[in-house]
Amino acid sequence: MRIPCPHCGERASEEFSYLGAADPLRPPPDATAEAWHAYVFLRDNPAGNLREFWHHVHGCRRWLIVTRDTRTHAIAACVDPRA
């Protein structure tokens, strides 16, 4: 795969490491056990577009959010969440 890093340009996927879905948001400290369980363990795992974290380890070292179709690997977007 080639990932279009917003800082470094299009780069080969082995420059990056993968974490997983970007959408579950970390609950507040006092959230329920169910909310924490859902955040840490449950995944939509869609066959289709997925917003996911990739870390540009051998580049800018930014954690990027890539929108990618898990059936075709087509990348619709790659953004730095801070930007």
């Binding site: 974490l19 970390r26 974290f53 870390h55 380890v57 070292r61 930014r62 954690w63 969440p81 801070r82």
Partner: peptide, 13 residues
């Protein structure tokens, strides 16, 4: 290091 970068960039920007 990657864990800290995630904690900073994503969780505590």
């Amino acid at each position: 290091l990657a864990h800290m970068e995630f904690a900073h960039q994503v969780l505590r920007p």
